[in-house]
Simulated assay, not measured.
Amino acid sequence: MSRTRRSKSQGLTEKEYFETFFKIPKQNASKGRTVYIRPEFHQKFLKLIAGLEIDRLTMYAYLDNIIEHHFTEFEETIYKIYQDRNKPLF
C-alpha cells in the first residue's frame, strides 16, 4: 500500500494522515477532563495502536490530534455559525 495514496474524505496522503493524527502531543492530559467514548471506538483504537506499534500514542493524544485538526480545518465555518447564532445585542 502506497503511503502517498490520498484519503477519500479530506485529500490527505497516508503520510500526512499519520503525521497529523498519530503525533505525540508535547503536553499531557494531567489537567484535562474526562471524555467518554463508545466502547466500539475504544476497541478500534486499541487494535489500531497495537497493530501500528506506536509507542506513547494514548487515547488522549489521538483525540487531541483529531480535535485540533477539526478546529483548524473548519475554523471559518465554526466561527460563522457561532456569529450567526449569537447576534450582538445592539
Rank of each mutant, 00 (worst) to 15 (best):
G51I: 04
Q43H: 09
R6D: 11
R5H: 06
H70V: 10
H69R: 03
H70S: 07
P39H: 07
H70F: 11
E16A: 07
T58S: 13
S7E: 15
L46I: 06
I49E: 01
S9Q: 14
F18E: 01
A29M: 07
I67Y: 00
R56D: 12
H69K: 05
M59A: 05
S7P: 03
S2F: 13
K26N: 13
T20Y: 01
Q27Y: 05
G11V: 05
E53Q: 11
T72W: 01
T72S: 06
I66K: 01
G32D: 11
S2W: 10
S2Q: 13
P39K: 11
F71D: 09
L52E: 00
E14M: 11
N28I: 08
R5V: 13
Y60S: 04
Q27P: 01
K26C: 09
R5A: 15
Y17G: 06
E40P: 00
S30I: 07
N65F: 03
S9Y: 06
T13K: 01
H42Q: 08
K8G: 15
S9R: 12
P25H: 02
L52D: 00
E53W: 06
Q10T: 15
L46A: 07
T58D: 03
G32L: 09
G32I: 06
R6I: 04
V35R: 11
G51P: 00
I67V: 12
F45G: 00
E16W: 06
Q43W: 01
R3I: 08
T20P: 02
A61V: 04
K47L: 07
P39Q: 10
A50N: 14
K44I: 12
E14G: 06
K44H: 14
F41M: 15
K23F: 04
N28G: 09
R3K: 12
R33W: 02
E14P: 05
F22Y: 04
T72C: 03
T20C: 04
R38W: 08
N65L: 08
L63C: 10
R3C: 05
D64K: 13
L46W: 02
V35E: 08
L63G: 00
E19N: 14
A50S: 14
L57I: 12
F18L: 01
R6F: 08
A61S: 14
P39M: 07
Y36A: 08
I24A: 09
K44M: 13
F71V: 14
